[in-house]
Design a protein around this nucleic acid. Structure first.
Lengths: 240, 240
DNA sequence: GAGTGGTCTAGACCACGGT
DNA sequence: CCGTGGTCTAGACCACTCC
């Protein structure tokens, strides 16, 4: 996520926005003024501003200027979490939450027609089918149902699965994860959810479905993450 | 969302990607090749590719090229829905779904400390507090709890609220909506949800919380949209 | 009409991937 | 090493906002 030296411009501007240095006018200085101040080209300035806009901190209006969006407690949190792109994603990659992983199921299967429709892996492809429970603060909070294409992600072991498969992919296989496409739904809890999750009185789960692609454009993973209510927040910013 | 004439490059490339014209190599032509073909500058080409990347259709790799991501039935849907940015958002703005709006509550209140903490509107500000039920296919599917800053969005009437408040804001007030920040959670259903929604056997709701800002950076809306399970899908693309 | 951001061009150098 | 995309500069013109 971090790039060259001129990325510093973004950092400085962000700090100023968060500190409220521009709150009097609710505007950033003009691009020309920033070009002068940082002594860089317009490209560099615009890139920094675009990054701020992507985080929902500012908004550029043609003919007017770059508007600073009101800072509110809630929205500050949103900014933060979006900046770090954490949230549930961390369950798949690096995580800093205190948690424990339990393997409920681990096997290798061949994709049939039914599994094909669900995962969109081709029929006949060998995949690892893994079920894992994530315990967070002594609660079974997430049930991960993973399918990894065994031709692209070979030699997964229960040992690896009990740690981070993403670390294995990145560090051991030295494969680059390019894009993850996600769907999020709310579903009535199924038998398997009741078995593995601490649902309490709730009878629904969140279902985050992920399709992950490597930098050759190949889908190597299909995952359903079923999680219990009241514990997770997803953030999103829509620009008009 | 649409810009200048050279936006056509994006359209052409997108069509080719979706048609599978680049599937043999799983690559786009190099930037230089596209510059030749379209006879434009590198800037224009890169802008078009970036747009494709934002939709999750392609992924640029330094030193390698622009990789086309595998097209699968599921992921195609994701692409589509993201391209149109619909989903639940449509409930706030333009909507094409067959639905009916029922006003359950309509009043004007002054923000107190408690409401301030929830909405992040300043204490003392007059707001419209509106509750609306969205019936979709004869089912009460969504309960919208809106708070609009009455100083920024004045003169809302029940008539306006029974239609589209966003249309009123855009067309009548001629205000520009700049950014909407969203949180999505799954919550145990509350009394008011049971009263107004066709929850069936489910005892949970999705809660989409929206903070909307105009192009002066001012937050003019806080909304909670409570929706029933199994009917809505949210999409997201994460790039690494 | 003056000021501002949005688009676009032409050209340079760098960093990474693959051979 | 070559080819590729990523960053950056300098400068131009256009479209919009606001006085």
């Amino acid at each position: 996520m971090v790039e060259t030296t001129n990325n510093d411009i973004y950092t400085v501007l962000k700090e100023r926005v968060l500190n409220g240095q521009y709150n009097i006018k609710m505007r950033l200085p003009t691009e020309d003024a920033l070009i002068e101040e940082f002594n860089v080209s317009r490209y560099a300035i615009r890139k920094a501003i675009k990054q701020l806009a992507n985080e929902g901190l500012v908004y550029s209006v043609k003919g007017k200027g770059v508007v600073v969006l009101e800072q509110t407690p809630q929205t500050k949190e949103i900014n933060l979490s979006l900046a770090k792109i954490n949230g549930l994603q961390s369950l798949n990659s690096d995580q800093q939450i205190d948690h424990k992983t339990i393997i409920a199921d681990f096997k290798q299967v061949i994709v049939d027609e039914k599994l094909h429709r669900k995962t969109s892996f081709s029929v006949g492809v060998p995949v690892y089918a893994i079920k894992r429970i994530r315990r967070i603060n002594t609660k079974s909070a997430v049930l991960d149902i993973n399918y990894f294409n065994a031709q692209i992600v070979p030699d997964i072991t229960p040992e690896i699965a009990s740690g981070s498969i993403y670390d294995y992919i990145k560090n051991d296989l030295e494969m680059k994860i390019a894009v993850v496409k996600r769907q999020l739904r709310i579903e009535h809890a199924s038998q398997i959810d009741y078995e593995h999750l601490n649902l309490g009185i709730n009878n629904c789960v969140g279902n985050m479905i992920s399709f992950a692609f490597n930098d050759n454009g190949k889908q190597f993973e299909y995952t359903e993450s079923h999680f219990i209510p009241d514990n997770f927040i997803f953030n999103q910013i829509i620009k008009f």
